[in-house]
Simulated scan of single mutants.
Amino acid sequence: MVTFASADEIVAMLEVMLEEDWMGLPVWARNLAFRLACLQRPKDAELLHWAANDLRAFGPDWNTIAAELHHRADQLEAGHEENRP
């Protein structure tokens, strides 16, 4: 269901799931959910920061991706949108 859900539906699910039991959603599922939501909302700085923080919580394997997401979000917040596909 997540694969074809809208970003609003994915974000709502993440909010509920992570509030109820922060570790209840497997890491692979939360990474997929955040990725799909970010792909649908590439200019949502708040979502990008949230996704980056979630990645950092699960180890150094994703720190580079998290840093890129934070950088992109910071650029959006500063009004310096980068030309990205």
Rank of each mutant, 00 (worst) to 15 (best):
A5S: 15
A5H: 09
A5I: 00
A7K: 05
D8K: 11
D8F: 12
E9D: 11
E9L: 05
I10M: 12
M13C: 09
L14M: 11
L14V: 04
E15C: 14
V16G: 11
V16P: 09
V16L: 13
M17D: 08
L18F: 03
E19D: 14
W22E: 07
W22L: 06
W22V: 09
W22H: 08
W22D: 04
G24L: 07
G24A: 07
L25F: 11
V27P: 00
W28M: 13
A29K: 05
A29G: 03
R30N: 05
R30Q: 10
R30P: 01
N31P: 01
N31G: 03
N31F: 02
A33L: 02
A33D: 00
F34A: 02
F34L: 02
R35Q: 13
A37T: 00
A37L: 02
A37M: 04
C38S: 12
C38Y: 00
L39K: 14
Q40P: 10
Q40D: 06
Q40Y: 07
Q40V: 02
Q40T: 02
Q40M: 07
R41T: 04
P42V: 09
K43N: 14
D44T: 00
A45S: 08
L47M: 15
L48I: 08
L48K: 06
L48R: 08
H49A: 01
H49F: 12
H49Q: 11
A51T: 00
A51L: 06
N53M: 05
D54C: 03
L55S: 07
L55Y: 05
R56N: 07
A57D: 14
D61G: 08
W62L: 12
N63F: 05
N63K: 03
T64Y: 08
T64P: 15
I65C: 00
A66M: 03
A67P: 07
A67K: 15
L69K: 09
H70S: 04
A73K: 14
